[in-house]
Nucleic acid binder design. Structure first.
Lengths: 137, 137
DNA sequence: TTGTTGTGGACATCATGTATCTTTTTACGT
DNA sequence: ACGTAAAAAGATACATGATGTCCACAACAA
């Protein structure tokens, strides 16, 4: 019942990116040092975020990463689902994840679906425009 | 970001117990069969719930388990924390789990603490009196 | 005593998290 | 043009915890 370490690191990395001056790239090394994230693990995370369309990568000696769109257009939900896939608070809310009580609605499932909806809404509201230094929270 | 299988099984087992006639015990075998939970895994879960004060066990050939108190006095939060320990949505909300930004409050941490509080409140509201057959939801 | 119950420990398997190494790409100085 | 350094990208190996499984043992009512 805890966010994966990978997603936590991803959120911190994106927060860092959101605070870079426009046009400036963040490298694996610089982000790793600033946010205290193991370098090689961060490399995988940034690659996944690039695949997920949240970051853009540039190779070569002056390379690095930048946000693919404005910070306020990137939400916690985007980042977490790019890393861990679709959020499900319980196995039984996943597709085909629940075989209990086939012909009537499972009460437990109903509860978890409700919580999941609330949680995802909260994650979708939280964007990285809020996390830029010197801006209103 | 998902409830452990162990806790999910625990909730189902307790739901099952809440529906037994007063005085009737549920055995590992019967609960395992009714809820489709692997027998030996369930045995550990029920033992943990007994240690946590949620169930009472009786040994011997007529033995089994029953709820330690009324169904409506047992919440999801009780069951889940008895199995997995205190709930934390992120490592950084655990004691000593966050070293980021020591001298100012970490914004990410603030967000997760807020969500965690909401989630625990919801789990604490959800009790097994609601889950007895033929009762109002 | 016998069979059913719970209890406890050892082990297997898989996903997650982490570290190490190599390859490919690019810029820059010579 | 060339070589080198610095960057991303990819491959591999290992540690740890979650999820079960297996089996021997203890308790106890019939």
């Amino acid at each position: 019942m805890r966010l994966s370490r990978k997603s936590d690191y991803a959120l911190r990395a994106i927060k860092h990116m959101a605070n870079l001056p426009t046009g400036k790239l963040g490298s694996i090394n610089s982000v790793s040092a600033a946010e205290a994230i193991p370098r090689e693990f961060l490399a995988k995370i940034l690659k996944d975020l690039t695949r997920g369309g949240i970051l853009v990568s540039y190779q070569g000696v002056t390379g690095g990463y930048r946000l693919a769109r404005a910070a306020k257009e990137v939400t916690f939900l985007h980042v977490i689902e790019a890393i861990d896939g679709p959020i499900h608070l319980n196995l039984c809310t996943e597709d085909d994840g629940c075989r209990c009580e086939q012909y009537e609605t499972c009460q437990l499932k109903t509860f978890w679906e409700g919580q999941e909806k609330l949680f995802k809404k909260a994650l979708g509201r939280e964007h990285f425009g809020k996390y830029r230094k010197g801006r209103a929270k």
